[in-house]
Nucleic acid binder design. Sequence first.
DNA 1: GGTTTTATTGAAACTAATTGCAGTTACAAT
DNA 2: ATTGTAACTGCAATTAGTTTCAATAAAACC
Lengths: 139, 139
Amino acid sequence: MNHSGDISSKLRRRGYRLTPQRMMILEAVEAADGHISADEIYARVCDRYPHLNISTVYRTFELLKELGLVTETDMGDGRVRYHSIRKGHHHHLVCQNCGCIIDLDEAVLLPLKDALFRDYGFDADLKHLAIFGRCSKCR
Amino acid sequence: MNHSGDISSKLRRRGYRLTPQRMMILEAVEAADGHISADEIYARVCDRYPHLNISTVYRTFELLKELGLVTETDMGDGRVRYHSIRKGHHHHLVCQNCGCIIDLDEAVLLPLKDALFRDYGFDADLKHLAIFGRCSKCR
DNA sequence: GGTTTTATTGAAACTAATTGCAGTTACAAT
DNA sequence: ATTGTAACTGCAATTAGTTTCAATAAAACC
Ligand SMILES: [Mn+2]
Ligand SMILES: [Mn+2]
Ligand SMILES: [Zn+2]
Ligand SMILES: [Zn+2]
């Protein structure tokens, strides 16, 4: 799957460039399944392309987020994790006791999103949320 | 208001101690209004009690959180902020464009909390949430 | 082509927060 | 009073992430 032409023009239109670094990082993000951290992406890309700086990874994630190509979520361990947007909008329930993660369909948060828009005119950005608490086993 | 006896026994029951450091920190948290950071508490306490380490502040906040005496929230600036629980449960809408903060009553999130409990048996910890997005002016 | 402009990068400095550890303190049991 | 145990603290080192800045590479202009 090579939609790098897609992305290149998407970047170009905003005055950005599709550099080798960005290409490699994006490729690695698309290849990864699950929630991946900057460090992990850095390690994987470095295997094939050693001249990469960790700052560039962080900056690229910032950019990809801005472009809506990835979503960012803090799942409660000490680092932020990313998801390719191609995996669709969804959310997670994270148990603070046993650490288990329950997947949640986007629809569960729609009533809230609608209420915030209706009552406060606020357009909530609920793309990939982590909601903390206790699962049924741990209550 | 001096309910330090309260807290002392609350700690004691769990095998913790009410040390001078903890007393000063808790006092400063109660005195502060609004959302306060570890750094800010550290500075305030140090004015009167210079022999305090910033690690102790972080660790004390961890403990106070565990005891349910403060709530912790990341409002989107680079640091975590705290609230005395005495200010009641509430939430905030944080505009990612202009930075404005809209206060939100606890009730707005009750339907979600109930739905998560009903459908997933998940007891969501929604004590002091920050929901990011765009306010009515910035859409 | 050559020149100017602008985005991008890596390296290093920096911030917020956490962790490991060794020394200290409180407290309960002898 | 002495001892043993567990909690607590300060300090230093570490981690995740951001910022600053000079060097570079790409695009745009001539
Ligand atoms: Mn996910
Ligand atoms: Mn608040
Ligand atoms: Zn659990
Ligand atoms: Zn706004």
